[in-house]
Design a protein around this nucleic acid. Structure first.
Lengths: 211, 211
DNA sequence: ACGGAACCTAAGCGCTTGCTCACCCTTTGT
DNA sequence: ACAAAGGGTGAGCAAGCGCTTAGGTTCCGT
């Protein structure tokens, strides 16, 4: 979707933090994402984040009140990105099978391509404050709703054979999300290949007539 | 498999730490599992673990040299348990479909029933020391091998239709493992129900002829 | 020319962390 | 009877933590 490639300083990812301003805050976010993904939120120090961003520890607190607020910003942007990707696939053309496959393909591709961000988004929820957590959980329910919607469409249209719609929705999302845990750039598969494989597997899970 | 029920002090789980001795060490392990599962390894303090086990902070170091060694004990026992469960299902009776269903059913049930232990086993690998980590990774490869073995059997026998065997193995295991992330006792589903649902979904993923 | 906003740093405060140490009970073998 | 061993404690150390503060520099509108 994001056609503009950056100047290949970080070749793997299209710029996901473009709308974080000012520049120093964006550098902090990028540093924090990498640190959180590598070591986890609690094992990451503010000194480490600031160091990676090329600043003194104190500079962090000019842009963010706390370390947790930095995590919240990452989690918020990440969830919106994930939701947008899913929605634009869900609202695409074609029958339920086609749209479900497109949704899984792009959702999985995002989790693989941006697996550092995705790791933070999916596995550091517990480190958020209570208020921030409930806000994020609301967005996650939206994500669930989008996928369930496609599956319901397919069942209604007779395209899918799904005995347990909420359960299958849960399983499909779970499968996609867990990509962030195991994916590495050193692995044998590219994000596109994983997306293709998973789209096929999910169509089988919902008993899609034909592919 | 474990027929002897405890005196229902902790109704949810059959005793998984029975062979950890002495008694004080077992209490520490149980306390650590709950603390690690709730807050994560790095956010858990040795004081918290000792407190939950009813001891002073210093008592922990009589039984374990470091906090990390405690995690390693938990991870080691947990991985052996998980592997045993999978193996006894894989070596059971019947065709590949039956054995794969049994493996997924019991593996998923374990992840749901013992989701606190499973959470530590599956999501705190990164906190292990380098040596301990490589030791655990070896056990994880065995787990992968067991599942791949069943799928290969099914393909050879013409029972399954699987274009990408390593990829599908990965997806099946990923689906099961992620149960530890989302499962709660407050949810609508029992561990048995999740196991049943997932066994069905996995049979669909491998294109099993009949169920 | 210059007041002020924006941004950054060196130094460090108060606290918590993993872990240790000196010492104290109980149980056990002889 | 009593030394040894095993299992425990209270107090506390050195290090590292999140975060603050006082002060400096750069840039801009007027």
């Amino acid at each position: 979707m994001n056609a503009e490639a950056s100047k290949a300083e970080q070749p793997e990812q299209t710029e996901e933090w473009a709308d974080v301003t000012p520049d120093a805050a964006r550098r902090l976010v990028r540093a924090a994402v990498h640190a959180f993904a590598e070591r986890g939120y609690h094992a990451t120090t503010t000194r480490d984040i600031a160091g990676r961003a090329g600043m003194s520890p104190a500079a962090l607190y000019i842009h963010y009140k706390t370390k947790e607020e930095l995590l919240f910003q990452i989690s918020g942007v990440g969830h919106r990105l994930a939701l947008d990707i899913l929605r634009s696939a869900a609202e695409g053309e074609g029958g339920a099978a086609r749209r479900l496959a497109a949704a899984v393909r792009s959702f999985v591709r995002w989790h693989a391509e941006h697996h550092t961000t995705a790791r933070v988004v999916q596995y550091e929820l517990g480190a958020l404050s209570e208020e921030h957590y409930t806000e994020i959980v609301a967005r996650r329910r939206e994500i669930d709703g989008v996928v369930r919607g496609i599956i319901e469409d397919g069942v209604r249209a007779g395209e899918f054979d799904v005995p347990d719609i909420p359960g299958t929705t849960l399983a499909v999302l779970s499968l996609c999300i867990d990509v962030a845990r195991w994916f590495t750039t050193e692995g044998r598969r590219t994000p596109d290949q994983v997306g293709e494989l998973y789209a096929d597997l999910v169509l089988r899970m919902v008993g899609a007539t034909d592919a």
